[in-house]
């Protein structure tokens, strides 16, 4: 019984102190230009396409893909489950709830990374959290996931593991030969990628 009293004697006053003092909220709401540049330089905003493919296949509800291209482009081709917020409408009120929240991870993507990075910079400057950019954009997505290149035979094991993952993820997401034939990202070749999604799910055990 004695240790319990000793513990209480020490820990209850500590609890009282921490309950009484105000919380430390000295963090600035907006980032300074320096901080933003720092974040951009460390490239922390990028999410690798493998990670995104993994989440799509596992139907992970903790992320949301946001297509920041124009509505036309979005209708021609988009990643499974993506929603469309053209970068020109980024600050419209109806999207504020989506962009400024701390539940889901928003991943912006565009053809390359420039437009997606614009969206990220604007939202980051506003102090919004949980916004990220698909590394390499759709162009790299096609190269890396839907049409991966076999690494040279002298490559380290990790390269082969990555290649194997990309190959199976690509198959699950409807890539592979269909897209390989004309992979200049024309809309026709991309169509099967979207439709093929429901009948996939071979590589769900990626972890």
């Amino acid at each position: 019984m004695k240790p319990l009293k000793l513990l209480a004697l020490f820990i209850v006053p500590m609890g009282l102190i921490i309950a009484a003092v105000p919380q430390n909220k000295t963090k600035p709401y907006k980032l300074t230009a320096d901080q933003l540049l720092g974040e951009a330089n460390t490239r922390t905003q990028y999410i690798a396409p493998e990670a995104v493919a993994d989440m799509i296949i596992k139907k992970d509800p903790s992320f949301r893909l946001i297509d920041v291209r124009s509505q036309d482009d979005f209708e021609k081709f988009s990643l499974p489950g993506a929603i469309n917020i053209p970068v020109s409408d980024l600050l419209s009120d109806k999207y504020a709830d989506i962009l400024n929240q701390d539940v889901k991870m928003n991943i912006f993507y565009s053809n390359g990374t420039i437009t997606a990075n614009e969206a990220w910079m604007v939202t980051r400057q506003l102090g919004y959290k949980n916004n990220f950019v698909l590394e390499g954009g759709l162009n790299y997505w096609f190269d890396a996931i839907l049409d991966p290149k076999k690494p040279a035979s002298t490559s380290p094991d990790e390269e082969f593991a990555k290649y194997d993952f990309r190959l199976s993820a690509g198959k699950a997401l409807g890539g592979g030969l269909t897209v390989q034939t004309n992979q200049n990202q024309s809309t026709e070749s991309s169509k099967p990628a979207v439709q093929a999604v429901p009948k996939k799910k071979k590589v769900s055990g990626g972890c």
């Binding site: 513990l7 009282l16 921490i18 309950a19 009484a20 919380q23």
Partner: peptide, 14 residues
Amino acid sequence: SDGVFAFLLIIIAL
């Protein structure tokens, strides 16, 4: 606040 909750949790734990 985090602090008040912490205090409650300490009481609960004890």
